[in-house]
């Protein structure tokens, strides 16, 4: 998994987002056992406490769960993963809409442009 960090947001928030993305895109399939916090922290080059904090938050959200001795796993609840996937999509769309608005496009214009672009692609 490739880790990338921007300079303006808290690191734990960026970790959460990147792990969410890996899970919803199937990079870590449902039921997959995750590497240890220390290994993940080493791979991402972040502080282990920060990685732990991200994992705790992901557990709270129900995307991962830990079993006392066996380690930490991706949830097998596909509906939960699908919901997270929708959230990711909504965030992407919102970012896109904000940027288009800054460029001065109206909602209708944006829809038209997106349709055009998608037709052009196919």
């Amino acid at each position: 998994m490739k880790w990338q960090f921007s300079s303006d947001a808290p690191i734990y928030a960026q970790l959460i987002e990147q792990i969410q993305r890996t899970i919803v895109s199937g990079g870590w399939p449902p039921g997959e056992r995750l590497p240890s916090v220390r290994d993940l922290a080493g791979e991402a080059g972040v502080n282990p406490n920060t990685m732990q904090r991200a994992m705790t938050e992901l557990e709270r959200e129900g995307l991962v769960y830990s079993q006392r001795t066996a380690g930490r796993f991706v949830t097998e609840d596909r509906a939960r993963i699908e919901a997270a996937r929708n959230q990711c999509a909504q965030r992407q769309i919102q970012t896109f809409l904000d940027k288009m608005e800054q460029l001065g496009y109206s909602g209708e214009e944006i829809l038209r442009l997106v349709e055009q672009e998608m037709k052009g692609e196919s």
């Binding site: 300079s7 303006d8 947001a9 808290p10 690191i11 734990y12 928030a13 502080n47 920060t50 904090r53």
Partner: peptide, 11 residues
């Protein structure tokens, strides 16, 4: 560190 980044919005 993360508190700083959150409060100040910068690295």
């Amino acid at each position: 560190v993360d508190q700083l980044r959150e409060e100040k919005g910068m690295s």
